[in-house]
């Protein structure tokens, strides 16, 4: 792990789709979906391995017509790093309390939106989100069977007659 001043955006194994003011990134390796807001997306775009963090801040300043501090860029870099969207892992500049403090300070001073990378994991198997139903002939739920269990639904039927990871 190093702390490069020249971060490089990861390209391999990602599906990228732009929507107005945001960029969606789907990581094929982890099945994680990320949504980069405009600022995070701009920083990611400048991460070409040749542009330093202060230079990225300068580019953002001229793009937005307002002064952008290097710390704001680092906030984005830290999140991109955590989301595995950089080629090489970097040591986070802000963590925990330090990050909250940085967000507060930069938020007050910055005229542009703070960078945000929101992430969600897609189900490993699509079946996990598909309908699976309990069925059986007897009158008690104990005899019910989650019928799509072989393709990834939870193994049990709970007392409500819904497939569940636990019997009750």
């Amino acid at each position: 792990m190093n702390n490069p001043q020249y971060p490089t955006a990861r390209k391999a194994g990602l599906v990228v789709q732009e929507v107005p003011d945001e960029v969606l990134v789907y990581d094929l390796d982890t099945n994680k979906a990320h949504c980069l807001n405009k600022t995070a997306a701009a920083v990611w775009r400048f991460c070409d391995g040749k542009t330093s963090v202060p230079e990225i801040a300068q580019f953002l300043s001229s793009e937005s017509g307002t002064n952008v501090d290097s710390d704001l860029v680092w906030l984005a870099i830290d999140q991109l790093n955590e989301s595995s969207l950089l080629e090489v892992q970097v040591e986070p500049k802000f963590q925990g309390q330090s990050r909250r403090e940085a967000i507060r300070k930069i938020g007050i001073a910055s005229m542009i939106a703070l960078p945000i990378v929101a992430s969600l994991v897609a189900p490993k198997s699509a079946m996990a989100s598909a309908s699976c139903n309990c069925q059986g002939d007897a009158g008690t739920n104990n005899s019910l069977v989650c019928t799509t269990n072989p393709v990834g639904c939870p193994p049990h039927c709970n007392l409500a007659g819904i497939c569940s990871s636990t019997p009750n």
Partner: peptide, 8 residues
């Protein structure tokens, strides 16, 4: 936002 909605 559309992006955050789509990832949901």
């Amino acid at each position: 936002t559309p992006g955050n909605g789509i990832i949901e």
